[in-house]
Write a protein that binds this DNA or RNA. Structure first.
Lengths: 111, 111
DNA sequence: TTATTGCGCAAGTAAATGCTTGCGTACATA
DNA sequence: TATGTACGCAAGCATTTACTTGCGCAATAA
């Protein structure tokens, strides 16, 4: 289980997406996280490790516990990749991001 | 190679992301697509099949050729998932592109 | 008609993925 | 100090993945 590891790979797994969703709301330690899934603690621990390696969560060690905190900016790369195509299926952007608005207006001549 | 197949899974593979990028610009038949990659035509053909099954491209049969056309709205699901977290990191940076430039320069070890 | 091209369908393979169980270790609490 | 708790490491295993080569067939060019 050691190979190409990027954000796209990380969020490809539904369990990992769930983990992200959970720690986005509140910091959770590995066991607390594991309790919410049907799979073993080890399995969850591995997902956590992968998410950490991909920069999507960070670990805060506190005593013997390891709290997982979301680092959602790690999603930016994937977000940008998708955003570049968004204009093709949406007429209107409700995003406030200046960069995206800029790109949108630049490519309005397309299509 | 038959199992869980969703959009996240589909875009997890870099070759498939490249294929999407290519057919987003122009319709290409399988062979034309295959020529642009190092892998065999069969491999590309399989990626195309997967992308089609995930609703990210559609095939237009024309004689013996099969033209791949992007169906970028298929990305909406993934887009929405990421979008829900966007607010959590957008205010952390002046702009998205600044951050992307940062991670791109960090990713020199790629491939 | 015959040769060539475009492409899908296997079948086979190596590597990656997801998960499990067993074990060791650091931290806590009785 | 003895015991329980949080969690990583590692080995083992069934699948899935990404590819490859070989074959066959329909559409097209010679």
């Amino acid at each position: 289980m050691e190979a190409r590891r990027d954000v796209f790979q990380a969020i490809a797994d539904p369990t990992r997406r769930e983990i992200i969703g959970m720690v986005a709301h509140e910091s959770l330690n590995v066991n607390a996280l594991a309790e919410k899934f049907d799979v073993s603690r080890q399995a969850v621990s591995l997902h956590v490790k992968i998410l950490q390696e991909c920069g999507l969560i960070s670990i805060r060690q506190q005593g013997r516990e390891r709290y997982c905190e979301a680092k959602l900016e790690g999603l930016a790369e994937a977000s940008q990749w998708i955003e570049q195509y968004k204009q093709f299926w949406m007429d209107k952007f409700d995003s406030l991001d200046k960069y995206l608005i800029k790109i949108q207006s630049e490519k309005k001549t397309d299509k």
